[in-house]
Every structure is written in C-alpha cells, then in structure tokens.
Write a protein that binds this DNA or RNA. Structure first.
Length: 260
DNA sequence: AGTATGACCTGATGGC
DNA sequence: TGCCATCAGGTCATAC
C-alpha cells in the first residue's frame, strides 16, 4: 500500500511518540509477515529513533533495529483492539502500537545491525544528489518505469508515484533507460523531488484504505494526474488517459504527452 | 549481473 | 442473491 510519502507521514506520526520510550512487551501472531527469524520479545528495549528507509519504517533501539514494511495493506495504529488481521503489537507504558495487515505482504524484521534487505537498498529519492542520480540511472538497461520501481536503484518509489513522475517528466513508461540523455534524467530528478515533497505535504495518497497512525487519510490522491484516471482527460492536453499493464502493474499515462 | 515472470495473500467490485 | 473473474500503494524466488 504505502509508498515513500505515506511511509514518511507515518514515521512523522510515530517518531515523537516512540522516541525515548521503552517497550514493555511485544506480541506476535503467526503469519507470513514474519519470514525467517521471529523478532525477539523486546521487553525492556528502548526506542532511540524512528526513521524511514524507502518504504521501511525503522526503529533504532538500544539493542538493535526493528524494521517494518507495510506491504500493500499494512497499517500501524495506536491503541487499536486486536482483531482478525492483527499481526503484532508493541506495548509501551502509555499506549500500544498495533500492526494490522490483511494480505500479509508486509514484513517485520529484527537485527543487531540494520537488517537486510534494508541495508542494501538504493539511495533515498529526496537525499540523492542530482549527479549521483544521473550516474546511477545510466547503469541500467530497462524500461524507465521498471527502473523507478527498482528499490536497489532508488528506495521508496512505488506504482502511483512512478506513474505520476513519468507524466510530469513527459516520459512514456516503456521508454528504454539507455536512450535517455543526462538532461532527461536531470528533469526526472527535479520532478521527482517536487512530486514527493508535494505528496508529503498533503499526507500522502489514500486510494482505498491507507491511513496514518492517527487513522486519517491523506489527500494527495486529489492531485493525481494519471493514476486511476483512465479515460479522463489529461490535465495538460485533454487526451483520454490510457491504462495498460507493464511489469504486471497497472500503468497510467497520457498517450499524447508521453510518447514512445 | 540485470531483467522479466509467476507466486504469495485477502477482500472489494463488477459482470452475468 | 450468488458465483466467478479481475484487480489492488509490494516484493521475492526463479528462470533466462
């Protein structure tokens, strides 16, 4: 579900409440969310810092790193009563943080060091310098949308923001990366920053069920120019927005503004 | 090594 | 009303 702006919004809700607080106890229900090693009990651990690594939420504790990925349907809520799809909770002295995840595409990780695959993700889209972004982009030979979705290239973009970014940069999603000039990549870098900063300012996009830790929806979905706008007029030229499937993901674009 | 393709889950929606 | 197919903010393992 959540991409960079949604995870950033969640982290901003979590950080002030968790930082400096001690975990009294944790509870995990068996599910696919815990692949491999089960996270330790964590009773007594103190959270020092909560931050975002791409789409991962990372709590740095006195004894290690707790990483949470929300997959497609994950939610972190304060003080929710456990129900059918509750996968875990962490109890603090004043509140309880509850992880719900219907489809179980989310993940909970633990490590004394920053665990994989978090540690080997690409740079953050809002931190990567322009020159480094261009250099990295030119190493790949794939479709430009495929590259934007590749978390080793850049961490945090997903299907919505890839489509929205390609519209703003006027690039067809299937354009080959090796054909793009450095100037074109610089345009992508600039548009990417604007897009993500605007989306964060509006609390991210809520398509069906995304909510922040306060249970509130974001409003950036109202600003979408192509995503989920199939058949509606392009905001620039009026042509109907098209939807196709690329890399098994719904892909939205303007056939006139984004030519191959 | 980089890239493309099913597989993994559950629930909502729409057509018949 | 019910059944079935399709679709969904994401990876991940496998095969070329």
């Amino acid at each position: 579900m959540p991409e960079l702006p949604e995870v950033e919004t969640i982290v901003r809700g979590l950080a002030p409440r968790l930082q400096g607080q001690q975990i009294v106890q944790a509870r995990y229900w068996p599910s696919r969310v815990f692949r491999g090693e089960f996270p330790p009990e964590l009773a007594g651990a103190v959270v020092w810092q909560v931050s975002r690594y791409g789409k991962f939420i990372v709590a740095r504790c006195d004894r290690g790193f707790l990483g949470i990925h929300l997959g497609m349907t994950g939610k972190l809520l304060f003080d929710a009563a456990p129900q059918k799809h509750t996968r875990a909770f962490w109890e603090f002295s004043e509140f309880r943080l509850v992880l719900e995840d219907i489809r179980q595409f989310g993940r909970v990780l633990w490590g004394e060091q920053l665990p994989e695959p978090i540690a080997s993700l690409g740079p953050d889209p809002l931190e990567v310098p322009r020159e480094e972004f261009v250099q990295r982009a030119r190493r790949y030979r794939t479709s430009v949308k495929g590259l934007l979705l590749n978390q080793q290239f850049l961490r945090g973009l997903g299907n919505i923001y890839a489509d929205e970014l390609l519209f703003r940069a006027r690039l067809h999603p299937e354009r080959r990366t090796e054909e793009l000039s450095p100037a074109a990549w610089e345009r992508v870098w600039t548009e990417m920053r604007h897009l993500l900063l605007e989306a964060i300012a509006l609390g991210g996009s809520s398509i069906s069920d995304y909510v922040n830790t306060a249970g509130r929806k974001g409003s950036f979905q109202r600003e979408h120019r192509v995503y989920a706008r199939e058949g509606e007029p392009c905001v620039v030229c009026g042509s109907p927005i098209q939807k196709t499937v690329l890399l098994q993901r719904g892909t939205h674009y303007c056939p006139r503004c984004q030519r191959l």
